[in-house]
């Protein structure tokens, strides 16, 4: 598994995981996980539920602590003692499975509260930025409403705008479509694909294999807290080298259709 030919391999990686270990009480959620994310890359993390993917994401922006190993962002240790986790989080955007929009604020305020409170922008500038982003995700007309009035897919698109308002260097997506009705999954995935096409560096934990196949530059496969395989989508989905990967994919109904075939069938 070499990194040559990977997107962004000409520059140092933006995010690295070195031998990361994490426990919850007796449970070893992550066991020596190592991988990296290059600038401009879209990395998809797949694997059975409970295999540690979401935990790894939350460790990346210091929402969780580590028991062992190192995570670096732009060369600096994220969990360094005396380091500023807030600065790291400002430069990473996170989108949650349950959207986690702030229900007491309007949609517009949800998007502006990060820039005004954390970046110190004045309201006018924050509003302008927010409106542009809401237009980008297709929800300009919902700016004055509260999250309770929006569908799940709409809320998630607002959540993406909220994260983008901080102008992050890297976007983390934690199963962004798992809590959505099938009809609304598509609208969220389109927004994410558009973001990827613009060159945003993204780490996406997902069960949407179609999306991973079409949009990912690199796929990391997890099982029981370990990385069992990683490589370009072509390798993972058509010619996986590890048996367990093949089992997992076939369990999802994936029988190794080639990427070209699926692309042709759209």
């Amino acid at each position: 598994m070499s990194s040559t030919g990977r997107v962004g391999a000409d520059q140092p990686p933006i995010l690295t995981f070195e031998d990361v270990t994490k426990r919850y009480g007796d449970l070893l959620a992550l066991q020596g996980v190592s991988c990296q994310v290059n600038r401009g890359e879209v990395v998809c993390m797949i694997g059975p539920s409970g295999s540690g993917k979401s935990t790894l994401l939350r460790c990346a922006n210091a929402l969780e602590t580590l028991e062992g190993g190192r995570i670096t962002f732009d060369g600096a240790d994220v969990h360094a003692a005396g380091g500023d986790a807030r600065k790291v989080r400002q430069r990473m955007g996170m989108v949650f499975q349950n959207f986690e929009l702030f229900p007491h604020l309007t949609v517009l305020r949800n998007v502006t509260i990060g820039p005004t409170t954390v970046l110190g922008l004045d309201r006018a500038a924050a509003d302008a930025r927010a409106r542009a982003l809401l237009a980008k995700v297709g929800l300009s007309d919902k700016a004055g409403q509260h999250p309770a009035a929006l569908s799940g897919g709409q809320q998630q698109r607002v959540a993406i705008a909220r994260a983008l308002a901080m102008e992050p260097a890297l976007m983390l997506f934690d199963e962004p479509t798992s809590a959505l009705d099938p009809e609304t999954i598509g609208e969220v995935l389109s927004v994410m694909k558009a973001l990827a096409d613009e060159g945003m560096t993204m780490v996406v934990v997902t069960h949407e294999m179609d999306f991973a196949k079409r949009v990912a530059d690199w796929v990391v496969v997890f099982d029981q807290g370990r990385v069992i395989e990683q490589g370009p989508p072509r390798q993972i989905f058509e010619a996986a080298t590890v048996q367990r990967t093949r089992e997992f994919l076939s369990h999802l109904g994936w029988h190794g259709e080639s990427i070209a075939e699926v692309a042709a069938g759209e």
């Binding site: 922006n61 929402l63 600065k87 989080r89 986690e100 929009l101 509260i113 409170t117 954390v118 994260a163």
Partner: peptide, 18 residues
């Protein structure tokens, strides 16, 4: 209040107090 709300606020870079 759901734990996720605190995580979402922290993920934006807010201080705990904010």
């Amino acid at each position: 209040v759901r734990k996720g709300q605190m995580q979402a606020a922290l993920a934006l870079g807010m201080s705990g107090f904010d």
